[in-house]
Amino acid sequence: MAIPAYQAKKPNVDASTRAIQAGLLGWLIPGAGHFFLGARGLAAVFCLAISLPFFVGAAIGGVKDSINPKTNGWLFCAEIFIGGYTTVGYLVSNRLPDIPPKQQSAYASYYPGADVAQIYLATAGLLNLLAILDAVARAAQHGVPTFRLTEAQPKTVAEDGVQPGATSLSEALK
């Protein structure tokens, strides 16, 4: 498997720096890490498949209760992996009036909607964790998905002169 063009053009760029940049971008917006690495089609897939459940969950649950560490700390722990969306949701949630205990509110969601919202939001957050790790791994392994690295190495050596067993881009292109 050949080195993707976006990686081969920049042999001097430190792979770990690119991995950190890709990870941070992916944390801010789903798919942005892959977009940064040049895998734009995959970035679109990640962005759609992660943003959709997040927005559906937020629409069903409402940001007041669903994106709020005071009302649901564990859910917030999962959501925080989509940093950009969760930050905006949390800021809006803080500006909404508090809901008095044992009272119905227009800002809160109740069973069964609240349950579905929680599942959607938590799943979206954890899926983005997977996307972040994938972006970091691709940045560190010259764009090859992690599980393909072992099988790709012999071909890569033959076609592109990449060193076998290389763990970073600079090492691979020596």
Binding site: F46, L127, D134, P145, R148
Partner: peptide, 10 residues
Amino acid sequence: VYRASRAQSP
């Protein structure tokens, strides 16, 4: 998302 994490292109 799972399949995208294992693919080289969409």
